[in-house]
Computed example of a mutant assay.
Amino acid sequence: MDDNALKVSIRQQRPVPLDAELVCEAGEMLAIVGPSGSGKSTLLRAIAGLGKPVQGLISCGGATWRDSSSRVRLPTRERGVGMVFQQYALFPHLSALENVMEPLASLPSAERRKQAQAWLARVNMSGMEQRCPDQLSGGQQQRVALARALAGNPRLLLLDEPFAAVDRVTREKLYRELAALRRDLSVPALLVTHDVEEALMLADRLCIFAQGKVLQTASAAELMARPADGQVARLVGHRNIFRANVIRHDLGRRHTVIEWRGIRLAAGLQERFSVGSRVNWMIPRSRILLYTPNSETEHRENTVVGRVQEQVELGDMVALTATVEGPERPPLHLMLPAHVVSRRCISVGKPLHMTLEAEGIWLMPDERYQIDDEAAALPRE
């Protein structure tokens, strides 16, 4: 572990419960992802040293910022944190250049101006140095806020829902600019967001956060393919989450066979679940494929027949909900390119022949309150 990493192990009961442990390496962006009201911003404020002191340990860059056991609490101004907020938090009476010069107060005036101009150039704000915040668009204000956060050479960069207040087109431009800037950053960066897609695009790893607790931290690929449980699966956007019984482990074929309401499905081998146990299972929408019935159908794995119940166009993709033939099985959710839907003449009421890729089926511990087929979905905060 790098000595320049951010290390957090904190807890508190009030005003917002927290029980969180995380590590963010130097040069890494870690996204804290969770629903509104889950405590994400409270976690960021605790790391920055804002508000009531938390219990536990916070260190960054080899320095201890908070250690409740020895009563260490470094003031916010001495932690060297660069923060970017949802509502920009620029000084309204200062120009863009003057805002970026603020964290450079220890430098001679000419050097402050030179560095601030350089940072504004890096965020594509050259020529707008003398404009005040009310003369800038939302995207431009956010660029100034980012330049100000980075200008002070921070030990840690904190971004709290930084793109929530701008339109989608501007947001996508800011994503690209932040991704380009990140290549030169050598400090830990925490991004708080409720938008899973945003986190997947920008972060090296995701930390799934709910009710003040870290549920799972992993790379985007790991989280999407192997969520720790049904709650994490829901929070990262999976919809195909069901229950089944483990029937057997086929070591020769490297499969675990499960039974889902009368249908036997082969999953990738997952021996940690004992034969006879009840499990949750999930499959990403991208791992449900269509096939045309023919003489080779019997050789396909995990074939199910459904009927289109709902069809929603989402740009060049189409979201489909398909009922599955059999005893009150819950529907499957698919996402297909619009041209595939058109070519196959898919429409509401028509049959769908689907194969569920074995390697895409992931088993999780049984948690009844989280699964669609026997209970309501997770409540949203």
Rank of each mutant, 00 (worst) to 15 (best):
K350C: 03
L363T: 07
E367M: 00
E359Q: 13
Y369M: 13
G326E: 07
P337I: 07
P337V: 09
E367Y: 02
E357G: 00
T355Y: 03
D372K: 13
E357H: 10
V348S: 04
A358C: 08
I361T: 02
S342L: 12
H353R: 01
L356Y: 07
L352G: 02
V348C: 08
A338E: 12
E328C: 04
P365C: 08
T355R: 10
M354F: 05
I361G: 03
W362Q: 14
E357A: 12
G360N: 04
D372E: 14
R343Y: 11
P365L: 02
A338V: 14
Q370H: 10
E374D: 11
P330F: 02
V324N: 10
R343P: 00
V324E: 07
P330D: 09
V340L: 12
T355H: 01
I361M: 00
V340A: 11
E325Y: 08
E328I: 08
E374L: 13
S347W: 06
M354N: 01
K350S: 06
H353L: 02
D372P: 07
I361L: 04
L363M: 08
L334S: 06
V340Q: 11
E359L: 10
H339V: 11
T355Q: 12
P331C: 01
V348Q: 00
L352C: 04
P327I: 14
E328H: 13
M364V: 08
P327K: 15
S347L: 03
V324I: 15
D372A: 15
H333M: 01
K350P: 06
S347E: 12
L363K: 05
D372N: 14
E357V: 09
V341F: 03
Y369E: 15
T355D: 09
M335V: 15
P327F: 14
P327L: 15
H353A: 03
M354P: 05
P351M: 05
E367D: 10
M354H: 09
R329C: 11
L334C: 02
L332M: 10
D373M: 09
D373A: 09
G360C: 03
E359P: 04
C345K: 14
T355W: 08
P330S: 13
P365T: 04
E359I: 06
A338M: 09
L363C: 01
P351E: 09
P331Y: 05
M364Q: 10
E325N: 11
S347F: 05
M364A: 04
M335C: 14
A358S: 14
D372C: 11
G326N: 09
C345L: 14
R344A: 12
P327Q: 15
D373H: 07
E359N: 13
P365E: 12
S342R: 15
P337M: 08
A358W: 00
R344P: 07
E374H: 08
E359Y: 00
Y369A: 13
P331G: 07
D366P: 02
G326L: 05
A358M: 01
L356I: 03
D366V: 07
G326Q: 11
